[in-house]
Simulated assay, not measured.
Amino acid sequence: MHLTKKKIDAAKYKGADNARCVLWDDDPRGLGLRVYPSGRKAWLLSYRVAGRKRMMALGDYGVLTLDQARSRAKRELAAIENQSVDPLAEKRKRALEARTGTVEAMFRAFVADKKQKTADELLRQAELHIFPAFGKRGWQEVTRSEVRSWHEGIKAPYAANRALAALRAAYYWRLWREDDSPQTKHRDFRNPCVGVEMRPEKARQVRLERDELPRLQKAIDAEQDPYVRALFRFLLAVGCRRNEALSLHWADVRDSENPSVTFRDTKGGDDRIVPLSPYAADLLASLTRVSGNPFVFAGRVPGKGLTAVAKAWQRIRKAAGVEHVHIHDLRRSFGSWLGDAGFTSKQIGSVLGHKSDITSRVYMALGDESKRAAVNAMEALMTGKKANVVKLRKRAAR
């Protein structure tokens, strides 16, 4: 069709369900006038680059006349033909650069579409380690040697490795948004983090021994806040993660013949139902439900749950004489005690919510009693003497 001003002014929307309605011009081919259900009319240009069809917006009719739209379309087509450049891709590239110019801007854009819990954790690492070192630098300015020196300068190997992994992922996200070519995953040397080796990490193998438990429970009971007391006893009884317990709502507590709780949006990404022992069920039943507060472990702020429990734990573990035990070690102790009792790594992993029982095996570190039984048995084998062997329970069937 050869468009004229008369035809354009008379054009009406024809279509259903907001289907695209376009009047195509024949000079140049690819120039079109889109008519919207609202009556709006706008110029667009259809073209191909590397066999892929593209559609570029040129501007509204009224802002661009027919002659101006034709001239603009011919210029764009000539540029595409002569330079083999995709103007839409260049436009996206410029927009991406505008919002990811610095390392901090790049990182914040990287986490923007992630789950809130994941984004918060990544930003916590970035604000602690990445932004102070590289935040205001242009993302293309950072060199591999700088990243290596920065990584080596972070005191704790675990924190250094997590920060490096986060920065590396942000760079991959930025590079692949620009060229859509992730075929070289993990070896794209445009990423300044590639080639920087992770530092050796010492596996943490700390658990609470059962003879330490009475002292810990006494220290827990000395806390004034009943929700703090209940929280730490619940962690011991259920083996869940601290954040799973802190975010638990009464709506996810099932109080019946088979009591259970449902932990939402867990570290593994799924909801997880965990049965409760009579002890754990009675513990929750003893708590007062605060009106207008959905959280099981209610905080002092109306409508909110407990948040700052680290200071309470510092007091508790000091009073119990177990200052080497972290809060997460309660979960590790839970898995380890089940291992001592004869449960398999698969059974333990099912309760703890591990995707693989390989993780559960780490939590099955033998306690002092089991270790003593092992070395005493070896003494009997080596010397022929009768050893003082501690009898262990039979391992539960798979």
Results as ranks from 00 to 15, higher is better:
192 P>N: 04
170 A>P: 12
179 D>H: 10
162 R>H: 13
194 V>L: 01
188 D>M: 01
171 Y>H: 07
154 I>M: 06
206 V>T: 10
162 R>C: 08
166 A>C: 05
216 L>Q: 03
149 S>G: 06
219 A>V: 02
169 A>L: 10
212 E>K: 07
156 A>K: 15
215 R>L: 05
161 N>E: 14
174 R>N: 04
210 R>F: 05
152 E>A: 13
192 P>E: 06
168 R>M: 07
208 L>Y: 12
156 A>S: 15
208 L>E: 11
200 P>N: 12
204 R>A: 09
168 R>W: 04
185 K>T: 07
157 P>S: 13
168 R>H: 08
196 V>H: 06
164 L>K: 12
161 N>G: 11
204 R>D: 08
155 K>C: 01
160 A>D: 13
182 P>V: 00
153 G>P: 06
179 D>V: 03
198 M>Q: 14
201 E>L: 10
207 R>H: 06
175 L>A: 02
164 L>G: 05
159 A>T: 15
176 W>C: 01
150 W>N: 02
199 R>A: 09
175 L>R: 02
210 R>L: 10
171 Y>L: 03
175 L>N: 08
162 R>P: 03
153 G>E: 09
146 E>M: 02
193 C>P: 10
189 F>A: 11
156 A>D: 15
179 D>P: 03
154 I>V: 05
166 A>W: 04
167 L>C: 04
156 A>P: 07
148 R>K: 14
163 A>N: 04
178 E>A: 04
163 A>Q: 02
161 N>C: 07
177 R>W: 03
167 L>A: 02
197 E>H: 13
182 P>Y: 01
149 S>M: 03
198 M>F: 04
215 R>A: 14
217 Q>R: 11
196 V>S: 03
190 R>Y: 08
163 A>M: 02
153 G>K: 12
213 L>K: 09
146 E>W: 00
190 R>P: 13
195 G>L: 01
174 R>L: 02
167 L>S: 03
184 T>S: 10
168 R>S: 15
202 K>V: 15
177 R>T: 02
166 A>Y: 07
188 D>Y: 01
210 R>T: 05
148 R>A: 11
205 Q>T: 12
191 N>T: 09
181 S>W: 02
148 R>H: 08
156 A>F: 08
